[in-house]
Amino acid sequence: MTALPALLPDDPEAPFPPVEQALRQPDGLLAVGGDLSPARLLNAYRHGIFPWYSQGQPILWWSPDPRTVFATDAVKLSSKFRRGLRHCDWTVRADTAFDEVVEVCARIRRPGQRGTWITREMQVAYRRLHALGHAHSFEVFAGEQLVGGIYGVTVGRMFYGESMFSAQSGGSKVALAALAHHLHEWGWPLIDAQVENPHLISLGARLWPRQAFVARVAEMATLEGLPGRWNARVGDWPACRLAAPLPD
Rank of each mutant, 00 (worst) to 15 (best):
D27E: 14
A39T: 15
G152S: 09
V104S: 00
R83M: 04
A142T: 08
R120K: 13
T72R: 11
Q21A: 15
V69Y: 01
L77H: 05
F98N: 12
A71G: 10
W52H: 11
Y151E: 06
L36S: 11
P18H: 12
Q21K: 14
G133K: 06
R46Q: 13
G152A: 07
V75G: 03
A22S: 13
A131F: 00
G115L: 09
A74L: 07
H134W: 12
R128Q: 14
L132M: 14
T72K: 12
I150T: 12
G112D: 09
S137C: 03
M122W: 04
G56Y: 06
F50L: 10
N43I: 01
F70G: 08
V140E: 02
I150C: 02
F70H: 07
S37T: 15
R127M: 09
I49M: 05
H87I: 10
L146S: 07
A125S: 13
H130I: 07
I150F: 02
T116N: 01
F70K: 09
L85T: 11
Y126V: 15
F98K: 10
S63G: 04
H47D: 13
R93D: 00
L85R: 02
V124I: 14
V101Q: 07
A22I: 13
L129N: 03
A142M: 12
T116Q: 01
D27M: 13
C88G: 10
R93W: 00
P38A: 04
L29F: 05
E144C: 13
Y151D: 06
L60R: 08
V69N: 05
H47Y: 09
R127K: 13
L29E: 00
L77W: 02
A39V: 15
R67A: 05
V140C: 04
S78E: 04
I108C: 02
A14C: 09
R110E: 01
K80E: 05
E121W: 01
A131Q: 15
C88N: 14
G115N: 06
N43D: 14
W52A: 09
V147P: 12
W52T: 12
V102E: 00
R128A: 08
R109C: 07
C105A: 03
R24W: 11
A39D: 14
F138D: 00
G34Y: 05
P17C: 10
I59T: 09
D65V: 09
P64H: 11
R110K: 10
P15C: 07
A135R: 09
Y126G: 08
F141G: 08
T96I: 13
I150H: 00
G34F: 03
P51Y: 01
N43F: 01
P66V: 10
I49F: 10
L60Q: 11
R86K: 14
A106V: 11
H87T: 15
T72Y: 03
G143M: 08
G152W: 00
Q57R: 11
L36G: 12
H47K: 14
D95S: 11
E100L: 12
T72M: 07
L60Y: 04
Q55F: 00
R86P: 09
V19E: 08
V69K: 05
S79I: 03
L42V: 08
C105I: 07
I118M: 01
I118L: 09
K76T: 12
N43Q: 15
L42Q: 04
H134P: 05
G48D: 04
